[in-house]
């Protein structure tokens, strides 16, 4: 099979994903805690407390996986490469997906930043075709902007050809 794409995304992506994981964990934790408190107040049947214990256990496991496992694998998998006529992206955790987007199909290219990405001075490039959107997450801001402009320029040139 074809070689995997050569470029890797910024290593700080791992930190960003870990932070995301922490936020999600917090949401779970709040739900669990609420259930636990409400249960105490209203004298609900016993199995509810088992549910809360279960939820608490799941939340802790989730936290561990979301901090120590998933971001590292994800980062290792994420790769991209820009050819003169196509964009080649690989992503995935267990199931690995490789995408080919011919530059001539590109409709527009954006860079976007969430709060965490901004904190690390990172940016996500997202490439839209008429049907799909593909992302290259967590590149240093300048690199992302350079990439965005490169793709846009290539797309423009390709359009002229046709």
């Amino acid at each position: 099979m074809r070689e995997e794409p050569s470029q890797q995304i910024d290593r700080r992506a791992i930190r960003v994903w870990q932070l995301n994981g922490v936020v999600t964990t917090l949401v779970f934790a709040i739900i669990t805690a609420t259930l636990y408190i409400v249960k105490g107040q209203y004298n609900w049947p016993d199995f509810v407390s088992y549910i809360t214990y279960g939820l608490a256990a799941l939340t802790s496991i989730y936290l561990l996986v979301a901090i120590f496992v998933v971001p590292y694998i994800k980062w290792r998998r994420w790769r991209y490469q820009i050819y003169p006529h196509e964009i080649y992206v690989q992503r995935g955790l267990i199931i690995i997906t490789r995408t080919v987007v011919p530059i001539s199909r590109v409709q527009h290219v954006d860079t976007e930043q969430g709060p965490f990405l901004r904190a690390f001075k990172l940016s996500t490039v997202s490439v839209s075709t008429a049907a799909t959107t593909h992302q290259i997450p967590a590149l240093p801001v300048e690199e992302a902007e350079q990439l965005r402009d490169d793709i846009a320029r290539l797309a423009g040139v390709d359009d002229d050809d046709e």
Binding site: I95, I96, T97, T99, V100, T129, A130, A131
Partner: peptide, 26 residues
């Protein structure tokens, strides 16, 4: 065809198998 994807777990890849996804506009 707007984009082409190949997809597969590591095991499937080792067995030289994979899914093919093609996207079109509708």
């Amino acid at each position: 065809i707007q984009a082409l994807e190949t997809q597969g777990s590591r095991l499937a890849r080792r067995l030289k198998l994979g899914y093919l996804n093609l996207s079109i506009m509708n």
